[in-house]
Write a protein that binds this DNA or RNA. Structure first.
Lengths: 376, 376
DNA sequence: TGTTAGATTGAATCGACGT
DNA sequence: AACGTCGATTCAATCTAAC
């Protein structure tokens, strides 16, 4: 039976009462009340078990609004693992034999979740990285900016070969190359972010609709049932309704349920004809000076000059530029030698080639060509 | 002692015999022969073939059977976990208290490895994604193109705060924005890829040197010791030698050892000057405000202002600042008047000069210059 | 009404040092 | 070991207020 026939059939028959609504209650016990093997895809955004100590302040001394909610507190790794295995088992029961599950997390929890999924027999198909265009910075300068989250996509078990993967549609939407395992999306802000009457965010970790849309376009067909056992602000439901999929939400907190119901009621489903393809977003690849060294196009120890050879600076292995004691980025050093506040190092600095001088910006163009292929 | 002094010292004293060479043998038992707390950074690229071929061994050297039913699958996961815990524990013993460890893997093994690391007390600092510009395509069209691998960067334990992270150098190399957790590099191909006389690749998973260079530039200083317990084709050794770091390799197979030794012998180290790491402000010597008064650069009784002249405070002879009854350090008083918890008095307070206002931090720079000349 | 400078904010496991 | 003090630290986007 074709996907479109399935949609038509479903609309003519009695819809199950547990579909397209939010079930209030504990995740595990509510899952146990749902019929087994009834769900095509599960999207789960479980608590991350962040282990935060004191407060964190920005350089301007404002306080970071941390995720310190009661639902994210666990006594130990063992307690978190027990919680994880319980909801994964309950979720597995309601999943169709050819269904798949998506779980999103950060380095705080995703390794534990992934190991538990493997232990319970789920068969990992991909791990997919959500790269954030606008992540929160690292304020103390003690780590890399945490700029991504990880999603695990798995089938019910190794033998499940009949899962849905809309390979050709994804490829067509991705400029006719295969969809990769690293996706670029902004975090959820602006008009999409649910706010209360005071302008405060309703849910601390609302996911962007574009992320859920990509997931559903990849791994579901119109009319499929998508279950979200940690429904929160209801992104899964809103996107499912818009894309002509059924949703099932499970959520404990009434405030989230109310907000999600209101949100979903306002969603207008797309026409069936528009459900075919959803184009992906491309970003201008940003090239940093260090990428020239990474690619071997620029070597540590190379001397750079300004256009009139008034200054000479050496490239160091760490990707900085140095003139004697003066060292820093290509931009800082360019500004310093000229006594200016700012300087575009890409156009200011040159390297020797064929007896003449060439802007290093020329090398950036070469690297950018290579990065574009990767959809940087 | 500065990083450069440390390098110089090390080169003059007797180098330990276990440095800068490949130790042949099993990973765990060889690690147990190395001195404890002797290694600054570990880079580990452990095997992740759960049941694909036969080179996964239990800690007791018995072979894990290649199996595919569910029970044996769990059995092989358990064996892999035991193997993982064994080498992680042995690695932890040789790691300095402020050392860090990098482990790279794919979705087949990285979740198990990450969970084991947390269980053993390693404290995850970041997970870092290596995005491949040129990943292998997915041939069956049943999954997303697997276009990345995951690295876990962790300190020895939660209390280890003194680990090396060259934040300022990375930021300067990255066009003056902080380095993110997603890195873009090509896979190892072309001239860099080791081949045998038949043109076949010598090692199946040779890592690109640019990846290791980024890791070492981020988390080591010149002269540090970098250990690789799964040395393989020796990328870690080649990059360490080029970047003025010591390496320790452990490898079982003689063919890999031979190839790696030949490879490393051909590496030419960079000049020491090109290896300097851009220091941050934290590396600058501390200056107490009272030193300005001691040096006569600042006189008791001087009035200081914030940038907008909203507050005026008087310098007292003991190096404190006072506004009426309110008195304390330049930092405390700056924080108090703004109603904040903290404040950097050096950048907050200004003095009058030539009719305008100048940060007192300018005077600190003068004092530091004097300290440098005195060889302090 | 349009433009621009300034303020706000996002899943955060975010010191060092001397007493 | 616990505690107090010094003082270092942010990117992209949206929202608001001033001009």
């Amino acid at each position: 039976m074709s996907a479109l026939r399935a949609v038509a059939d479903q609309s003519h028959q009695q819809k199950a009462e547990w579909l397209d609504r939010i079930h209030k209650g504990d995740c595990v016990s509510t899952l146990e009340k749902l019929p087994e093997k009834s769900v095509d895809v599960i999207f789960a955004d479980p608590p991350y078990n962040l282990q935060l100590n004191g407060d964190l302040h920005r350089p301007d001394q404002s306080k970071v609004d941390a995720v310190d909610d009661e639902w994210d507190q666990f006594d130990s790794f063992a307690a978190y693992d027990a919680f994880t295995r319980a909801w994964l088992l309950a979720a597995r029961r309601v999943l169709k034999p050819n269904g798949t599950i998506w779980v999103i997390g950060s380095y705080h929890n995703i390794f534990r979740v992934g190991a538990s999924m493997q232990d319970l027999g789920f068969w990992i198909l991909n791990d997919v990285v959500w790269r954030k265009t606008n992540p929160m910075p690292n304020f103390r300068g003690r780590r890399f900016q945490n700029a991504h989250e990880t999603m695990i996509w798995a089938s019910r078990d190794q033998a499940s070969k009949g899962y849905t993967f809309n390979y050709d549609a994804l490829k067509a939407a991705n400029d006719d190359v295969q969809m990769r395992s690293d996706w670029l999306f902004p975090i959820c802000t602006g008009a999409e972010r649910l706010k209360d009457e005071n302008g405060d965010k309703i849910h601390p970790t609302q996911k962007p609709e574009a992320l859920l849309a990509r997931i559903m376009m990849a791994s579901t067909k119109p009319g499929d049932v998508v279950l979200d056992p940690f429904f929160g602000s209801g992104t899964t439901g809103a996107v499912a309704k818009r894309l002509g999929r059924h949703f099932v939400g499970i959520e404990r907190e009434q405030a989230y349920i109310d907000a999600a119901n209101e949100r979903i009621a306002a969603v207008k489903p797309l026409d069936r004809a528009d459900l075919a393809v959803l184009p992906g977003k491309r970003a201008e690849p940003r090239v940093a000076f260090v990428n020239l060294i990474d690619n071997g196009i620029m070597k540590a120890g190379t001397t750079l000059y300004d256009a009139k050879k008034r200054w000479a600076a050496k490239v160091r292995a760490d990707g900085t530029l140095a003139i004697g004691e003066l060292a820093g980025s290509i931009h800082r050093v360019g500004a310093q030698v000229q006594g200016l506040e700012a300087c575009n190092g890409w156009t200011f600095w040159h390297y020797e080639r064929n007896g003449g001088l060439t802007q290093i910006d020329e090398l950036r163009r070469i690297v950018r060509l290579g990065m574009e292929r990767a959809g940087a």
